[in-house]
Amino acid sequence: MSDAAKAVALGVDAGSTTWKAVAIDATGAIVASLVEPAEPRIGAQTERAVAVLRTQAGADAAVPLGATGYGRKRVAAARSLTEITCHARGAFARMRRPGVLIDVGGQDTKVIRIGAAGDVADFSMNDKCAAGTGRFLEVILGRLHVPLGEVAAFAARAERSVLVSSTCTVFAESEVVSLVAEGQPVEGIVKGLHAALASRVAALAGTMPQDGGVFMSGGVALNPAMVEALAGALGRRVEIVPDPQLVGALGAALAVRP
């Protein structure tokens, strides 16, 4: 292992659906990472998985650990920071300029304005309901029997988007059922669902500043149909932060980097 790749800090993002961790070197580059489904016992999962990561990255117990995500406070021997701060740091490290970061997660959607120094200038989050989150898509695509892996292909095949007016997960579910019953093509409905979700996220983002980039992170960023829908709703080019799922963990590691 070269000197540059020597791990100097670890970061854990204990989210509600997935558990993510990275090890970074002195330049901030990721030298090792782990992604697992979240287990109910976050403390135990972290203890086990962090040990694996330390071995992989060759990081002994002296290498500091930063934690974020809902489970952050249950990660032992770590400095904890919220996902907001960590996502901003992680995204800024990768994109190297200020902008607006949109993180569509399983349970939460966050819109974070990253300042010139990589700081959080402003943020907003969805309210309690799942209307603007990845969960919205997941529930309804399940209803339509569209596998998550094929979502983008489905949407791409659509000749036109079918208007889905409800953004409430429960309402949209029944609306979609009736659209199918009316004989609307599933492809068009899938595209319409993305547009509905994108409009909800755009509302959360408010008026966008014209300067700076628009970045996207979180698992949903891996879905090209969503990226396209979001770009349409915002009227801006949307750039995906590399390794979008690891942005929070990266930020947590950067926060404790010596």
Binding site: G115, A121, D122, D127, G132, L204, G206
Partner: peptide, 13 residues
Amino acid sequence: GATGGTRSGATGG
């Protein structure tokens, strides 16, 4: 909140 709000300047720091 999920329902909009007034934003101030684009960059904070």
